[in-house]
């Protein structure tokens, strides 16, 4: 079956619409990351925090555009969102959840570990993530820590393993209904 690249990208995985200089462009998050496409919902500090924690949760998340993926979905109506947190019964809108969680992660990193999350070493990151996962972050005042852990961990899994490239990295067939004419 012959299909256009545009249609293929739309149908094969994780291409989403980004607005660049007033124009809507269909890109994969990885392409958006590589192209340094501006963010529409998250600010720079939030992006840095999100990328850093997701990279510790699952290496490859940053380069696969996790921040661009999350940012693009936060700009949508919750009913149209493709974020994992849609599975949770969270109060909407979703940006509030991310903003609150990322701000608290940043604050805890500074106060408990004495460094920004971007500067945190591997041991510090593991300690922070374990306390997040186990729900025992000292002084945490944001959304429930295990919920934050699940949300960010699964965002990382989505962009690393939930795409056609991710399946290829695992060596398993994607089995899309429409066969891809080329890798993207």
């Amino acid at each position: 079956m012959s299909i256009s690249r545009r249609n293929f990208i739309r149908q094969s995985g994780l291409a989403v619409t980004f607005t660049v200089a007033g124009r809507a462009m269909l890109l994969t998050p990885r392409e958006a990351y590589a192209g340094d496409i501006p963010f529409s919902v998250l600010n720079r500090e939030e992006v840095d925090t999100l990328e850093a924690i997701c990279e510790h949760l699952l290496s490859g998340a940053r380069g696969n555009g996790v921040a661009h993926f999350v940012d693009s979905q936060l700009s949508l109506d919750p009913a149209d969102s493709m974020l994992f947190i849609k599975c949770f019964e969270l109060e909407q809108p979703f940006p509030d959840f991310y903003r609150s969680a990322l701000a608290e992660l940043s604050r805890v990193s500074e106060t408990v570990y004495g460094k920004s999350i971007v500067e945190l070493d591997q041991a510090g990151a593991v300690s922070l993530i374990e306390s997040l996962r186990d729900g025992n972050v000292p002084g945490w005042i944001g959304p429930p820590p295990p919920l934050v852990y699940h949300a960010l961990r699964n965002d990382a899994v989505d962009v690393v393993y939930g795409t056609m490239e991710g399946f290829a990295d695992l060596g398993i067939p994607y089995l899309a209904h429409i066969e891809p004419p080329e890798a993207w």
Binding site: G13, P78, A79, K86, E89, L90, Q92, D158, G162, L175
Partner: peptide, 20 residues
């Protein structure tokens, strides 16, 4: 209906919010 677990989430609920 795209073959993707990510795109699949468009088919799920999500609005209006249900207070559980």
């Amino acid at each position: 209906l795209y073959s993707s677990q990510i795109w699949a989430r468009r088919l799920k609920g999500g609005a209006p919010h249900v207070v559980e």
